[in-house]
């Protein structure tokens, strides 16, 4: 692997908690896509979580503690990019709100906010990527994760790039913009409601006849994959980055290997 440290923007990759534990392949896919687009990618070791679990549980102090850590770790990069609309929306939109009464941290939060990007939106909107040399055999349907869609305006970018993937057919599902029922801790606090919601989502996925689901947030994808697997539906689940990087050649989430159960 050749490093080209003087060329292109210096990007700090935000390794989300779920990606770090459950799906390292998404991280390597993100690195590949960013490097192929000319970026220098670093993965700072001092990072942990963006703080969203605290923020959405109403524990703003905990969220601020985590936010300060992220700001300190990433503020010297040209960009902070992560493969999750949810975490990146927290950094982009919520950090400045969290520090709105803190004259010391507010400017730093704002400075990080404007250079924080969700991966797909960074590739398309900042780097103007329009091509993909990846190959994927199959028909995929794209699930719009809520934070990416409504928080960051991610809708056309992943579809356009996926449309460039050789061999891949995209088929829209009904209600692709409706929440899958993950919602962070929601899915374990209100499991029955969450199950009903993911069931509706899965029904719409199956109705397309697609053999693959792609999306931009691992929380949603784990929820969808887990439900698909539980009802023995032979549909594979990948993060958009894996497909675009040509690294969707192994098993999908929850282990569905191509052609097996």
């Amino acid at each position: 692997m050749t490093e080209t440290p003087t060329r292109g923007p210096r990007v700090g990759l935000f390794a989300t908690c779920l990606m770090n534990v459950f799906r390292p392949n998404v991280g390597f896919s993100a690195v590949k896509l960013l490097e192929d687009a000319g970026c220098t990618v670093e993965v700072p070791a001092a990072q942990t979580c963006c703080g969203q679990p605290g923020y959405n549980s109403g524990d703003y102090d905990a969220a601020r503690a985590l936010a300060r850590q992220v700001i300190e770790t990433f503020e010297h990069y040209d960009y902070i990019v992560g493969p999750s609309g949810s975490c990146m929306a927290t950094i982009r939109h919520d950090y400045p709100v969290l520090f709105q009464d803190d004259p010391q941290w507010l400017p730093r939060a704002q400075a990080l906010s404007v250079k924080s990007w969700e991966l797909l939106s960074f590739l398309a909107d900042v780097l103007d990527a329009t091509q993909s040399d990846a190959h994927y055999d199959g028909t995929a349907t794209y699930h719009d994760s809520c934070s990416g869609l409504r928080g960051l305006g991610i809708k056309g970018q992943p579809r356009a790039l996926l449309g460039e993937v050789d061999g891949l057919k995209l088929k829209e599902m009904e209600d692709s913009e409706v929440c899958c029922g993950f919602g962070g801790t929601f899915c374990v606090k209100y499991p029955e409601i969450s199950e009903k919601m993911v069931d509706d989502k899965v029904r719409n996925i199956l109705a397309t006849g697609a053999d693959t689901v792609v999306g931009g947030d691992l929380g949603c994808l784990m929820n969808i994959a887990g439900r698909l697997k539980r009802i023995n539906a032979p549909v594979k689940v990948f993060h958009t980055a894996e497909v675009l990087a040509g690294l969707a050649d192994g098993p999908g989430l929850a282990g569905a290997v191509k052609g097996s159960d």
Partner: peptide, 24 residues
């Protein structure tokens, strides 16, 4: 609360940060 209604996708065994440090 999770596994009553869905499977939990399994991790690969090593975290991304571990693997990354091994590689780079």
């Amino acid at each position: 609360a999770w596994t009553d209604s869905r499977d939990l996708p399994a991790p690969a065994g090593r975290t991304f940060l571990e693997l990354w440090q091994g590689k780079r």
